[in-house]
Design a protein around this nucleic acid. Structure first.
Length: 633
DNA sequence: ATAGGGTTAG
């Protein structure tokens, strides 16, 4: 405002459009400088001053940026005044308002578009189909079905009911507001549909968890674009079906279609979920060849993919090479370092992030607390927990409390963890009690474990993991009757123990193993190889830790079960089938067993290999006889 | 003018 006035008081310095006489005698206006303060009025009074100046200098009002005039006057008493300006510059006023509606619809407060639309009707500005499209866009942004329905009705009154663009938007509105039935009804009634109509339906059905309906539509549609395939691939990922996502992507490639940037993100997310490093690397190369290196979302997804595939270094390279990073990039990297047990690096990265002026969000703190809890940095964790609300105004959510309980109970501060739960302002959920239970296993606290299971039995009665941990605690204390009781409780409630399953990819093929697996074609070779390896381990001092076997059976039987754990089978298979020295990567659906953990450390030394195990919640990187988790897990 | 993408505790 002050700036503007200063300029107005010295008209000579204005970069105002000038009237020039050309050689053939006609007059033209030179184009104006948009950065001039003259065109950056932000209020009615500034606009009036600008107008007064234009009139004084004989400059036509048409030099005014009309959409700006519209947005300044949109909700004020100058509304009719703005219309006058539009009239005198001989522009159809609705197009000017449309421009304004559009920028409101795409702004951070799309409701302004709806308000402006109401103003227009009050002042008898006749909307056209574009007007409707921008208001509908705002309604979709806000999931505002109420106003959307009004616009829908009004549209029909204006005779736009057969406009395909608008019909598509209406279908989108209903579907995204959770009215899938209505959307489908409208969709079925449409006389003509284009590929966008189908894509909207597929995307919305998949987003709302109805992947089967989406899949049906995908099969039915007359022609599919890359966006249709992408919608399905992304849909599978969102529904927790990464394998199906990857299968479909392969089919898409087979059909000769090229993945776009969104497809790349979706496929990479699927690779991260199932740990498909080979495909992930291939997509990375494809992405680079396609010139997507500077796409921040792709880079973020690449970081996540490499982290979840156990390649922390590759993730770091992507991160380092980004010329622009968002909070997601930093948070993903911090979380990755946490998952790999590199707590100090995670904290250092956080400091660096703060130094560059990037503000952390709630997710960043989950990564930081996660890092502290995986390395037992209790004091640091407490500090972060305090700091997030005090220094950054981020209220801790249930996830943050979960991290804190995990941090305290893992570190053996079980009573403090219990008090933390008692005093927390949010209702503790299963994860919170589960974290306490996990600590009880590490520190063999039966009493607190029993307290936790009472809550867990109520909050998440069908999750087998909690009962297994409790019976583990009993078995560890040789309380076999209690362990049996837990198993009976599981039976009575119809809860089955999820079988441990490990997988390894060799030459592009995924090999899956369960405990005592006899189904693999190389089973004899694997078992023989294990016996051989076992001899070498014994020489290194390996003693089987049979306490992890929950059954009350003979020691020899326990050892046999122990030796045929799924992760051991996968590892031996990997050693046999990959060249010496190559890193072996194994994924397990549950937490790695304690005995396997001890064995893997020794094996990494005996066979001189790096072994990376992706566990249910973190990575263990075995190398030269030690693990990256430093045995704190 | 209309459809789409990333990080989250155990």
């Amino acid at each position: 405002m002050l700036h503007c006035l200063a300029v107005l008081s010295s008209p000579n310095t204005l970069s105002c459009p000038k009237l020039h006489e050309t050689s053939n005698g006609t007059t033209v206006w030179t184009s104006y400088d948009k950065s001039s303060p003259l065109y950056n009025f932000n209020s009615q009074s500034e606009l009036k001053q600008v107008q007064a100046l234009l009139i004084k200098t004989g400059t036509p009002l048409s030099v005014l940026p009309l959409s700006r005039v519209a947005s300044v006057c949109a909700f004020s008493s100058s509304f009719p005044h703005a219309q006058k300006i539009f009239h005198c510059v001989n522009k159809p006023e609705v197009t000017v308002w449309n421009g304004c509606l559009r920028s409101f619809a795409e702004s951070s407060s799309p409701f302004d578009a709806i308000l402006l639309f109401c103003q227009l009707r009050k002042y008898d500005v006749l909307p056209d189909s574009f007007t409707c499209s921008y208001v509908l866009k705002a309604c979709v942004q806000l999931l505002d079905l109420l106003h959307g329905r009004n616009v829908h009705a009004y549209m029909e009154k204006l005779g736009f009911q057969s406009n395909l663009f608008l019909q598509n938007m209406i279908v989108h509105l209903y579907a995204s507001c959770g009215k899938r039935g209505d959307a489908k009804l409208l969709f079925d009634k449409m006389h003509q549909r284009d590929v966008v109509t189908w894509n909207i339906m597929i995307t919305q059905f998949a987003k709302r968890g109805d992947i089967n309906a989406a899949s049906q539509l995908f099969k039915q549609m007359p022609e599919r674009s890359v966006r249709s395939w992408t919608a399905m691939v992304a849909g599978f990922v969102q529904c927790g079906k990464p394998k199906e996502a990857i299968e479909l992507f392969m089919e898409m490639e087979g059909a000769g279609l090229r993945a776009n940037q969104v497809t790349v993100v979706a496929v990479l997310a699927a690779c991260a979920d199932i740990g498909a490093l080979d495909l992930g690397r291939r997509i990375h190369e494809y992405s680079n060849r396609s010139g997507y290196q500077r796409n921040v979302r792709i880079c973020n997804t690449l970081i996540d993919m490499y982290i979840k595939c156990g390649c922390l270094e590759a993730a770091r390279v992507v991160f380092e090479n980004m010329d622009e990073r968002t909070i997601v990039s930093w948070s993903a990297m911090i979380q990755g370092l946490a998952m790999h047990g590199q707590a100090m690096e995670a904290l250092e990265l956080f400091s660096k992030m703060v130094q560059t002026g990037t503000k952390p969000n709630g997710v960043t703190f989950i990564g930081l607390l996660h890092a502290c809890s995986h390395m037992g940095l209790v004091e640091k964790g407490r500090e972060f927990f305090m700091s997030m609300s005090r220094d950054y105004g981020i209220a801790p959510r249930i996830e943050h409390y979960g991290c804190m309980i995990d941090l305290l109970s893992r570190a053996g501060l079980l009573e403090e963890a219990r008090q933390f739960i008692k005093n927390m302002p949010l209702r503790p959920n299963a994860v919170v009690w589960g974290a306490l239970l996990g600590g009880c296993r590490v520190h063999n606290n039966i009493e607190l474990a029993e307290e936790a299971i009472v809550h867990l039995n109520e909050l998440d009665p069908h999750n087998d993991g909690y009962y297994v941990v409790l019976s583990n605690i009993y078995a560890n204390a040789k309380k076999w009757e209690n362990a049996a009781k837990v198993r009976k409780l599981m039976r009575d409630q119809g809860v089955k123990k999820t079988p441990g399953q490990s997988s390894i990819t060799v030459a592009g093929l995924v090999h899956e193993f369960v405990a005592c697996d006899e189904s693999h074609p190389q089973v004899k070779e694997i078992y023989a190889s294990w016996e051989n390896l076992l001899q070498q381990l014994r020489l290194k001092g390996y003693v089987p830790n049979t306490s992890v076997v929950l059954l009350d059976i003979e020691e020899a039987e326990k050892e046999k079960i122990l030796y045929h754990h799924s992760e051991k089978l996968a590892l031996v298979f990997g050693i046999i089938n990959t060249p010496p020295g190559e890193t072996i990567r194994i994924m397990k659906n549950l937490r790695v067993c304690e005995d396997c953990h001890a064995a893997f450390k020794l094996i990494s030394d005996v066979v001189n290999r790096e072994i990376v195990v992706r566990d249910r919640n973190r990575f263990h990187c075995f190398k030269n006889g030690t693990c990256s988790c430093k045995d704190y897990w």
